[in-house]
Amino acid sequence: MAWPSVIINIKNMMKGPIAGVEYHFLFVGYGTVSGAERELTVVDASTDLKEALSSAGDSLLTTVMAAQLNGGSEWTAGVMVLDQADDWKDAVRKANETASFEAFVLDFPAADKTLLEDAIAMRTELKNALGRETFAVCCLPEIDNTDATNGETWEAWLAKSVAIVDGVASQYITVVPSVHADGSTLGKYCGRLANQVDASIADSPARIKTGSVVGSTDFLTDKDGKALALSVLKTLESNRISCPMWYPDYDGQYWTTGRTLDVEGGDFQDIRHIRVAMKAARKVRIRAIARIADRTFNSTPQSEAQAKLFMTQDLREMALTGNPGEIYPPEDDDIQIKWVNSTEVEIYMAVQPYECPVKITVAIYISQGDKA
């Protein structure tokens, strides 16, 4: 006979929220630093950047200030200021020892595809070593317009810019040209991507309702003083480069879609698609870890049904985030469980973003019928 007693256990069902890193970017650039240490500085919308980043060079300070200005009231970021002799990859690794970021931003132009490929490799290293889902943001060199004799025309600069990204393939990197006169193009783009007040990760930077870019909208000119034309920006965009742009007879300056360097035909040529997929991956990874060696997750129909409900709870939350949600609500067929053997299971999950028009055609016709 059992001794009369009451035993109470408190169970953790892992149904709580998982903290996200969305909108939180790491900026890496050069400045004047002393000593051996390169420390991570965390800033937000209220930070006096000139004071907090007093060691940053003009380029990095301009980029972070433009990101802050365009990022909205909830903007946050991490910043690593380096010496020119430092390896930026070490800075990214160091920052990731104490924080997580949705993206890392390199505030120095890619003279050739080497920097882009190194950024992709760095992203892969973070994924393999830490399970971090992140993407890279890089920029291209400015046009050389300092010398009317030896400088560049827009045509020459365009050919050089397109050649840098040619042949590079990854959905985890997005590249912008440096075309604003004040050097703020990279920061404006990052701020637009990180503005969680006016948009979501499921929104394109091309979204007009987000508003015009904030800050100076003056563009560079070429060696002959020729203004930047929309035709140049259109050519950049067709070559997978994300560009600022404007609409004739419509005030303000806006953006094209957030192009990535995904291959032709890839599912993630638009930055909003890979951001949604990475957010889902970050959430589901935590859920999956919680079920390691848990025998309640087994191959019985009842257990698999419970596992599907558990694994999709964050997708259902994403479907309710914003109006409309970041993704369509998951359906029963959007998650499949496959048992490889008695100790290994594979889970397949479908995430469906909402359609988003970036080209609208309107047909106008004359109605000649009699009106009642």
Rank of each mutant, 00 (worst) to 15 (best):
A2C: 02
A2I: 03
S5C: 03
I8H: 07
I10Y: 06
K11E: 14
K11Q: 13
N12T: 08
N12F: 07
G29A: 01
Y30F: 14
G31E: 00
S34I: 00
V43W: 04
V43K: 06
D44I: 04
T47A: 13
D48V: 06
K50R: 14
K50G: 14
D58V: 11
T63C: 15
G78P: 09
M80P: 01
V81W: 09
D83Y: 03
D83E: 11
W88S: 02
D90Q: 10
V92C: 09
N96E: 04
N96C: 11
E97H: 14
E102V: 01
A103Q: 10
A103H: 06
D107P: 04
L116N: 08
E117W: 00
M122E: 10
R123A: 01
A129H: 07
L130Q: 14
G131M: 05
G131Y: 08
V137E: 00
D147Q: 07
N150I: 05
N150C: 01
E155F: 02
E155V: 06
W157E: 08
W157I: 08
A159R: 15
V162K: 15
G167K: 01
S170T: 12
V176I: 10
P177L: 02
K188S: 04
N195S: 05
V197C: 03
S200D: 07
A206M: 07
K209W: 03
G211I: 06
F219Y: 14
D222Q: 07
K223V: 09
K226V: 15
T235M: 12
S238C: 13
P244F: 01
M245W: 11
T256Q: 13
T260A: 01
F268K: 11
F268S: 04
H273I: 11
A281N: 12
R282V: 00
R282F: 00
I289S: 05
I289N: 11
T296P: 00
F310Q: 11
D314Q: 15
D314A: 12
L320V: 09
P324A: 12
D334S: 03
I337C: 06
W339E: 07
N341K: 10
T343R: 10
Y348W: 07
P357M: 01
V358R: 08
I364T: 05
G369Q: 03
D370L: 00
